[in-house]
């Protein structure tokens, strides 16, 4: 897992091209279609809860966060618990703070407009696909294109909004995605992206710590807290382990 860090010297500005955005969109397309299954579900639930098509589409286009939108539909009613809906959304999305932080070494090489604009479209899926690509670029010494994040994010964005509209207007009933194994598509994609980071032996203990904390979190914490729990456990394990020798491939020191 060869992510660089903000303190590394010799990082110039990144390209930000249409080609890069299209490459990102293409790479994220299969998982964007998987997201669409849940967009249909959201559209359907939103109609049942009395949201107009305009309201459902406003939520999908301005909030654009699958888990929080589905949880919001659970809490939605004629008496709207506004503050708890907003607070729940914030807590469910706290994991994005760490995801954005992990992309900082690349995002600081874009203009603020490009970086903060791209972040609006960042989802678990587009973050993971983009980070995987940038890690591979780094390993191969290839130049990264800064438009990958917004390209992959837009693929998910389009799918999420189109499927919200479909679910709200056309679909009258939805079969369980698990019937076709579609629920597993997300596990498969995130597993493949984890493998794509090519973890080294020194990454093993942090990964085990993350897995253990996520399992405990999944058992005892509500919502998506298990992701934050696992992320912190993995980070802490890496921070507390003794620093690798400067000669090892795991060292964070630049080669002299």
């Amino acid at each position: 897992m060869n992510t660089p860090h903000a303190s590394s010297p010799a990082f110039g500005p990144l390209h930000f091209t249409l080609r890069g955005a299209l490459d990102g969109a293409r790479a994220c397309l299969p998982i964007a279609l998987g997201v669409g299954v849940y967009g249909v579900l959201f559209g359907l639930l939103a109609r049942q809860k009395g949201l107009s098509l305009t309201a459902a589409l406003s939520m999908s286009s301005f909030v654009f966060a699958g888990a929080s939108q589905l949880i919001a539909m659970d809490l939605w009613g004629p008496e709207l618990p506004m503050l708890s809906l907003i607070a729940t959304t914030f807590i469910v999305n706290l994991r994005h703070v760490l995801m954005g932080a992990a992309l900082t070494p690349w995002l600081t090489r874009l203009t603020p407009g490009q970086a903060y604009g791209s972040l609006f479209f960042m989802t678990d899926e587009s973050w993971a696909v983009t980070l995987g690509r940038y890690s591979t670029d780094l390993r191969r010494g290839a130049a990264s294109d800064g438009a990958w994040l917004i390209g992959s994010g837009l693929a998910v964005y389009l799918s999420w909004n189109i499927s919200t509209a479909l679910g709200h207007t056309l679909v009258r009933g939805l079969e369980d995605p698990a019937k076709y194994g579609l629920d597993f598509a997300f596990t498969a994609v995130f597993m493949a992206l984890l493998v794509g980071l090519r973890p080294r032996r020194c990454d093993l203990l942090p990964l085990i710590a993350a897995t253990a904390a996520a399992l405990l979190g999944g058992k005892f914490l509500p919502g998506k807290w298990y992701i934050l729990a696992g992320a912190f456990a993995g980070g802490l394990a890496a921070a507390l382990l003794p620093a690798p020798a400067p000669t090892s491939t795991c060292s964070t020191e630049e080669p002299k």
């Binding site: 897992m1 596990t187 999944g218 992320a231 993995g234 980070g235």
Partner: peptide, 30 residues
Amino acid sequence: LMSRITVTGRMERFMKAIPGAILASIVAPS
């Protein structure tokens, strides 16, 4: 937050472990 600070040492190792840790955490329960 991260563009305002320089991370070194333990904090840097913490940040570098985050991507893998997040992916492992998403996958683990399912």
